[in-house]
Amino acid sequence: MMMGSGKRKWLLLGGLTICLLLVPMLVTDIYILSILNMMIIYSILCLGLNLILGFTGLLSLGHAAFYGIGAYTTAILMTRYNFGFGSAFFASAVLALLVGIIIAIPTRKVRGDYFCLITLAFGEIFRLVATAWIEFTRGAMGIVRIPMPKIFGIPIATETDFYYLGLGILIFTYLTIKAITDTRYGRAFIAIREDELAADTMGINTAIYKIMAFSIGCLFAGMAGSFLAVYQTVVTPSNFRLEESCLMIIMVIVGGMGRNLLAPLAGVVVMTVATEVFRSVADYRMLIIGLIMILVLLLRPQGIFGSSSFKS
């Protein structure tokens, strides 16, 4: 909650942060570090998606598209226009935010299932444009040789460097979303999820708040995408398929939606580990992931760390 056991919670979070900072000193295996880095990217994505899905109750099937917008913006700006990472990162976030607002404005009055379809369509449009507009995005070949990022002149080269950079973005994301959701804005998002009509009569301009929640979620997807671009040094349309959007939704639901901002991260860990562990049995991997999800939903419908189940 917002007040009360605040001190202990911050202590716990501080401890967790220190542990996370120490990880690269203990883990030297590049493979494990690369998995951790992917977890960080998904964590940023899921924190943003939780704002849209967990708080505001909007099921967006197009989150991967905003991730993609961030990735392509950084890739194109850095390879063709000699942007540094800092400015490309900023531009990616802003562009994802703007496109988020553009998508959210016409959808502000559509109800659940239609919203879902529109975001699904947008996700597909993005992927098809990225595949087909060859002069601009180089299609399925993707954009390659994205230069190594530098932060204040320090080159980010190794897995460890990227780990720290990603962790920095993740902590920034967490603190920003925490600050927003601890105020009347977070409560307004929840009110919309719970009962839009009642929220309206409480003086909440539901249209504006929905646009706000959606576009802020997209902003962080743009940041995650930008990080992915410099981390992988390659972006291709296949990074941003519908499966990615679904995977993010699964992560948020399995981890737990809503007030507990860190809960979705549990989903990220479980799903990423599951994907890696079952890589050897590639054909059955999705089957196993599906099973994990069904099990979690049966045993803990509110998610691993979720506080309350919705729509019971």
């Binding site: 009347r184 409560r187 009110a191 719970e194 909440i204």
Partner: peptide, 19 residues
């Protein structure tokens, strides 16, 4: 009744004070 069922009593009333 249109209370916000899945959140605390406190948050319900805080939302009432929103504006």
């Amino acid at each position: 009744l249109r209370v916000f069922s899945n959140i605390s009593v406190l948050e319900n009333v805080l939302i009432g004070a929103h504006c």
